[in-house]
């Protein structure tokens, strides 16, 4: 807690933190409540590929969700590197989905999934803001 107090992060940082957590929890909820008939569509292979990817990605996300607050409240320096790495990963999978894998994967057509896809850039913006603030905000001098 002392490590975070020393930096005096802005409300925007904590807003981004809550926004990122909210997005990820919503995405986990969407995956956990995916109906079984989603695989009965004509594009079964592509949906299956996307789902396989999502399950692997979300196992990493759950570790990050649980571990990140501990790192942030223990060492801001390590939190900086972890945040940059997680932001790079989030951007990499976003680029991968739209630039590289767009012919191979297809997300299930469902209202909640479409909503999550639509607000994905906001989630990336939250992570980028957190990375910048952790990198450029100097600690408060006593």
């Amino acid at each position: 807690m002392v490590a975070v107090k020393k930096y005096q992060f802005t409300k925007l940082f904590w807003g981004s933190f809550i926004g990122a957590y909210g997005f990820l929890l919503l995405a986990i909820f969407a995956i956990a409540t995916l109906p079984d008939n989603v695989f009965d569509t004509w594009d079964d292979i592509h949906v299956r590929a996307a789902t396989k990817l999502i399950y692997v990605r979300f196992s990493i996300v759950i570790f990050a969700l649980l571990g990140y607050p501990i790192i942030l409240f223990t060492s801001v320096k390590i939190a900086k590197s972890v945040t940059i790495a997680l932001t790079a990963w989030a951007i990499a999978i976003y680029i991968d989905d739209y630039l590289v894998l767009y012919q191979i994967i297809e997300y299930p057509q469902r209202g909640l999934v479409n909503f999550i896809q639509a607000i994905r850039p906001l989630f990336l913006a939250c992570l980028i803001w957190m990375s910048f603030e952790l990198t450029f905000r100097p600690p408060e001098v006593d």
């Binding site: 590929a49 990817l53 692997v56 590197s81 940059i84 790495a85 990499a92 991968d96 894998l101 990198t135």
Partner: peptide, 21 residues
């Protein structure tokens, strides 16, 4: 160092994606 970290994360992600798909 930040660029190297980003490249490393990107390459790890692509490898995992390739293995899965």
């Amino acid at each position: 160092k930040v660029m190297c970290l980003i490249a490393l994360v990107f390459m790890l992600n692509t490898t995992v994606d390739n293995v899965i798909i």
